[in-house]
Design a protein around this nucleic acid. Structure first.
Length: 756
DNA sequence: GCGCGACTAGGCGGG
DNA sequence: CTAGTCGCGC
């Protein structure tokens, strides 16, 4: 045996060591399409990292022939680091690893010539975020003479995005339109696209659809990439949408080595058009696909695994599987009711403090998860009050803060002179735009349209810095203001050539007058100023190269950061506050899920649509499942009896999802912290005690049901009891409702009346 | 065209 | 509650 062979075998052993049979199979299945269905905590990331290392080390696949798509930049970074570790520190050169959106942007930037010629998109295109998109929708509505109140921009935007992520063009949307509303949306869609192109801007959907158009327009490019990517791996496959699927399958066509990993039970992005069919139909589209199941959970205690499994099994639209573990029982899941969200936050904070003090739990081992970002405030307050360190993931994102967007608008405009949203933002928010109102802007827009120039050209022309013979017709105050703007932008633009970004940044704050608007004695302004400084230090880190060089990459990175990307896992000693959505893919020894209530989890909208769109409710359940399965050792579920939303106090009921968790896995804590061993009985008592004490109604008598009995349910209407079984001092009844089919309910929870 | 207080309408998640 | 819009006087 040659030395070379020996090395190969050793590397192979190295990379398979510690993997179970299915995991090994996933690493070793080199050729052809493979679908790995991986339950939570089943070692999916290990499989991906080991597989890539194996491809390179053992199979000798060059790095640049591998494409790995992850859900977040953070996941890509971590995967890269882990693979380098597996390769004993050797760097992972060439491997393309990142989100779909980053990859899409890269494809477009890599082919500036074709992109400009065929797609009419210039290489310095701006990536518009949701707020920018909404501005374009508003402009489109105005241009079509439609009332933004009748057609809410955010709703329209959602519809446009949905169409785009299914590769539907404006014209197709028009043909598909069945209602007046849909027809209007199609018209706005068309205008939206026109305005976007004119601003040389792309929205997030474009980052996926435009590469597809690029490949349609230039098949030779597609062939080149098809040839290049010998192996394609996709993580979180259950959350990919139609466009992503089309893109990936186009690229995989040549070598057919498409390796996708996902879990239908963790699909939580339906609202972003994630198409679960991508995973369910994988074998239909790839008849030769192999399917590997990873069902053994290594992450959580047996109690957590069983509880989560019970919860998810309530979903109807689901492939029947069972999540298992060999881990020890662990501690019971703690279920806790609190009176309101302030108490909930206090309870959580006190538990954290107690654990840190007496059980030596590190703060960064703890996460608090919730359905809506609004919930984080009360939690933050409680933690701050006790001096407990924490970090919030998400919420108002740094790059979406007003002061940050204001400054970035100038940088964006300098980079892409056609960026009208940035320009209008500058005019509206920076002192240099004072004196310019809708009328002046309209005059400039009209001029720009007639001259086939950008709005910025209009300002430059007024300032005598333009390349045109005419200039927009402005007079008086508006004229001098426009001159000021034009001259300032022209001056800043010159700095791009050889000044570093920080110098440019300082000049922006100075010359636009924006820096002077901060009152350093006001607390709020001080906060905003701190953000400005944070932005500056970020630019400082980019070095002293000319802004011309560093700005493009900076703007792209800013546009594509995800909330979780900002999560600092290296930073020791801080509790993580995070939404359930962002928590996907993460794990923590201790997890609190707060607000496990009807209306919040599941969210009220899903409840309202319960009968029309039951899949929304199932997605909520999956979201809860994702949250539960983040926990390794300890899981706390809390809910409150009264929650204030928008200043109004409402009474809440524990989430229906909780009823699926068997008693023996749970330890319920009573309101005063007294430890009571109780499961559903306790839950039931508290649900019953839900009305305000002052008007407390007498508890309804405990009814026992029997098969054949006619009942009336407040929501489901009339039905007949088909089956009634005793369960933990309660009854589980299967009722066949006239209008809603058969439901399994707990007698104590379902406020049904008997009709006989 | 600006800045102020009054009013109201959201009512989720995010690359 | 809070961001965004409206209508007013300057």
């Amino acid at each position: 045996m040659s030395a070379l062979d020996f090395t190969g075998t050793s590397a192979s052993h190295d990379l398979l060591a510690g993997l179970n049979e299915q995991q090994q199979a996933s690493v070793l299945a080199i050729d052809g399409p493979i679908l790995v269905v991986a339950g939570p905590g089943s070692g999916k990331t290990r499989v991906l990292t080991h597989r890539i290392a194996y491809l390179m080390e053992v199979e000798g696949v060059p790095g640049d022939r591998i494409l790995a798509v992850t859900f977040t930049n953070k996941a890509a970074r971590e995967m890269r680091a882990r693979i380098e570790q597996l390769r004993h520190g050797r760097p992972l050169d060439g491997v393309v690893m990142g989100t779909f959106h980053a990859f899409g942007a890269r494809l477009l930037r890599e082919n500036p010539g074709v992109v400009a010629d065929r797609l009419r998109i210039l290489p310095q295109f701006t990536i518009y975020d949701t707020a920018d998109q909404a501005e374009i929708v508003k402009a489109a509505l105005t241009s079509l003479g439609l009332d933004p109140k009748l057609f809410q921009p955010r709703r329209i935007l959602g519809r446009i995005s949905a169409a785009k992520s299914q590769l539907i063009t404006p014209d197709e949307a028009r043909n598909l339109a069945e209602t007046y509303d849909e027809e209007v949306i199609a018209r706005v869609f068309k205008e939206y696209e026109r305005l976007l192109r004119r601003a040389n801007a792309l929205d997030f959907d474009d980052l996926l659809t435009q590469p597809i158009h690029l490949f349609e327009e230039a098949p030779h490019l597609l062939e080149r990439y098809q040839e290049r990517f010998q192996h394609i791996l996709v993580d979180e496959y259950q959350d990919t949408n139609r466009v992503q699927y089309v893109l990936v399958s186009a690229l995989a066509e040549r070598h057919r080595n498409l390796f996708v990993v996902g879990d239908p039970d963790q699909s939580i992005y339906g609202w972003r058009q994630a198409d679960i069919r991508n995973i369910l139909d994988f074998e239909k589209d790839y008849p030769d696909a192999r399917q590997i199941h990873l069902e053994l959970n290594y992450r959580s205690t047996a109690r957590i695994v069983e509880a989560a499994d019970r919860v998810i099994r309530e979903n109807v639209a689901r492939i029947d599987r069972r999540l298992r573990t060999d881990n020890d029982e662990g501690e019971p899941i703690v279920l806790r009711e609190l009176t309101d969200q302030a108490h909930e936050a206090q309870f959580i904070a006190d538990e954290i403090r107690r654990m840190a003090q007496f059980q030596d739990v590190a703060y960064d081992d703890i996460a608090i998860m919730y359905r809506t970002t609004a919930q984080s405030r009360a939690l933050e307050e409680a933690l701050r009050f006790r001096g407990l360190p924490y970090q919030v993931v998400g919420g108002v994102r740094f790059y979406e803060r007003k002061e940050i967007k204001d400054v970035l608008a100038v940088l964006r405009l300098l980079h892409n002179p056609a960026d009208t949203v940035a320009l209008e933002r500058i005019i509206g928010n920076l002192p240099m735009g004072r004196g310019l109102g809708p009328r002046a802007l309209e005059a400039i827009t009209t001029w720009a349209a007639a001259e086939r120039r950008t709005m910025l050209d209009g300002f430059l022309a007024v300032a005598g810095r333009g390349a045109t013979e005419t200039a927009p017709a402005l007079s008086g105050a508006a004229r001098s203001a426009a001159q000021r703007v034009g001259a300032t932008i022209a001056g800043l633009h010159e700095m791009l050539i050889d000044e570093p970004l920080t110098a440019l940044f300082d000049a922006i704050l100075d010359r636009t007058g924006y820096g002077a608007t901060f009152d350093r004695t006001e607390e709020e302004d001080l906060d905003r100023w701190a953000n400005i400084l944070e932005l500056r230090s970020e630019l400082e880190r980019l070095g002293d190269d000319a802004a011309r060089e560093t700005l493009p990459q900076y703007l792209e990175r800013v546009a594509l950061v995800a909330d979780v990307d900002t999560l600092d896992t290296d930073e020791r000693g801080r509790v993580t506050l995070i939404t359930l959505h962002s928590a996907k893919g993460l794990e923590f020894p201790v997890v609190f899920v707060a607000g496990v209530e009807e209306g919040l989890l599941p969210i009220s909208r899903a409840i309202e649509n319960e009968h029309l769109r039951p899949e929304e409710l199932e997605e909520e359940r999956r979201l809860f499942y994702v949250g539960m399965t983040r926990a390794e050792r300890l899981l706390y579920l809390t809910y409150v009896s009264s929650r204030a939303t928008y200043g109004k106090v409402g009474y809440s009921v524990p989430s229906r999802f909780l009823t699926a968790i068997p008693n023996h896995l749970v330890r319920s804590l009573g309101r005063r912290g007294s430890l009571r061993t109780e499961g559903k009985a306790g839950l039931r008592d508290r649900v019953r005690g839900e009305p305000p004490p002052a008007v407390a109604a007498p508890a309804p008598p405990v009814v026992t049901y029997q098969a054949g009995q006619k009942v009336f349910h407040p929501k489901f209407g009339e039905g007949v009891v088909r089956e009634a079984t005793e369960r933990a001092g309660d009854q589980e009844v299967a009722v066949e409702f006239v209008r809603h089919g058969t439901k399994r309910l707990l007698a104590s929870l379902a406020a049904m009346e008997t009709l006989d």
